[in-house]
Amino acid sequence: MDDPELIDVLGRMANVCVVVTKQPQGKYTRPGLEMLTKLAQESGLAQAAYPELAELAPRQDGRPLVVGPGSSSWVDKVDIGGVREIGFRRVGNRLVPIVHAKIMLLGRMGWTDEHPSGDVVDQLFFVPEKLWIGSANFTKSSRSSLEMGMWTEDRELMAAARDWLLTLVGLSEPLGSGPDDLDPELLPVEYDDAAIFESMRDERWELFMMTIPTSSSDERTGQFAR
């Protein structure tokens, strides 16, 4: 991906992530790819805007993140890099599966402080608006080739593309940093069930203590002790 006009436009977007097939080691240090590496470093995807990625977190010391009582929300803090790799790096003449589809999903970012439960929240969300599907591979040379492409606003196609693209994001790795094999940076979190159960048991006991009547009038009216 070395089309300078396309990369420039992507760099001006507030929320962007491009997933490409894993390339040979050292390729991104070659002349002409500086804009792509800059996009990877300076742009990103706000993970909090995508519920599909909510159970994923960067690994800790090579292991999945363990979540328990008092754990802060990692999702609100994570920006996934603007350009990512996925798959297997070709070594020698070994053929490997590649991400061959060329699609782009555009939309707008929104924010709300209203939760369906009535609680006040701080929530980002993404609304798909247009899907581009074509044969051009986002390189300079594709501009001089005979290519096809189309925009669509079909809701079912956009929903399917969103699921597929976010699956790729979830399996991806930072640009140019991973091993030759598939090695996702984001892993499903692990929950400390024992600690969570203990915390819930303590909270239930506190709630029970709060609901014990303090007088006969409280007992009759069913009011909570405060």
Results as ranks from 00 to 15, higher is better:
His115Val: 07
Ser141Thr: 04
Gln47Cys: 14
Leu124Tyr: 12
Glu156Pro: 04
Ile86His: 07
Pro213Arg: 01
Phe208Val: 03
Phe126Thr: 12
Pro24Ser: 15
Leu175Glu: 13
Pro69Glu: 11
Arg84Met: 15
Glu153Gly: 12
Val20Thr: 13
Asp218Glu: 15
Glu219Ala: 11
Met35Phe: 00
Tyr191Gln: 01
Glu42Tyr: 00
Asp183Arg: 06
Gln223Tyr: 01
Leu56Asp: 09
Pro213Cys: 02
Thr29Asn: 14
Val18His: 03
Trp74Leu: 12
Trp151Glu: 14
Asp2Lys: 06
Asp122Ala: 15
Gly107Tyr: 11
Arg155Met: 10
Val9Arg: 03
Asp180Ile: 03
Lys27Phe: 14
Lys27Arg: 14
Val189Met: 05
Glu42Leu: 04
Arg84Ser: 08
Leu168Cys: 11
Met150Trp: 06
Tyr50Lys: 11
Met200Leu: 08
Met158Phe: 07
Lys27Ile: 11
Asp192Ser: 02
Pro58Met: 07
Val83Met: 06
Gly178Met: 08
Ala57Gln: 03
Glu206Cys: 06
Leu6His: 01
Ala48Glu: 15
Met1Ile: 10
Ile86Thr: 10
Gly107Phe: 12
Asp181Ala: 00
Pro51Thr: 14
Glu114His: 13
Ala225Phe: 02
Leu182Trp: 00
Trp74Ala: 13
Thr214Ile: 06
Leu171Asn: 05
Met148Tyr: 13
Val66Met: 09
Glu198Thr: 04
Ser144Glu: 12
Gly222Val: 03
Ser141Trp: 01
Tyr191Leu: 15
Glu190Asp: 10
Met158Asn: 10
Trp164Ser: 12
Gly107Cys: 13
Gly118Glu: 03
Gly149Tyr: 08
Lys140Val: 04
Asp183His: 05
Ala225Gln: 07
Thr152His: 11
Asp181Arg: 06
Phe126Leu: 14
Met150Asp: 12
Gly149Ser: 09
Glu203Ile: 02
Pro69Trp: 10
Ile133Tyr: 01
Arg226Cys: 07
Val120Asn: 13
Leu168Glu: 06
Ser172Lys: 07
Leu53Gln: 05
Phe224Cys: 06
Gln41Glu: 12
Pro184Val: 06
Ser216Lys: 13
Asp119Ala: 15
Asn93Lys: 11
Lys140Met: 04
Ala54Trp: 02
Arg204Gln: 09
Gly32Ser: 08
Leu165Ser: 05
Asp202Lys: 04
Ile212Arg: 12
Pro64Thr: 10
Arg84Lys: 07
Leu95Gly: 01
Gly44Asp: 09
Phe208Asp: 14
Leu175Ile: 08
Gln23Cys: 11
Gln47Ile: 09
Gly44Ser: 07
Tyr28Ala: 10
Ser177Ile: 05
Thr112Ser: 15
Gly68Asp: 04
Ser216Asp: 13
Leu166Tyr: 03
Ala57Met: 01
Val67Asn: 07
Gly170Ala: 05
Leu124Gly: 07
Asp122Thr: 11
Leu65Ile: 02
Val189Asn: 10
Trp74Val: 13
Pro31Arg: 09
Leu157Ser: 15
Ile86Gln: 12
Gly170Arg: 00
Glu129Ser: 11
Glu156Ala: 14
Trp205Thr: 07
Ser141Arg: 09
Leu171Ala: 10
Ser117Gly: 08
Thr37Ala: 11
Ala159Tyr: 08
Ile212Phe: 04
Pro213His: 05
Thr211Leu: 12
His115Ser: 15
Ser144Pro: 00
Leu131Thr: 14
Glu85Arg: 06
Asp180Lys: 09
Val19Asn: 02
Val96Phe: 02
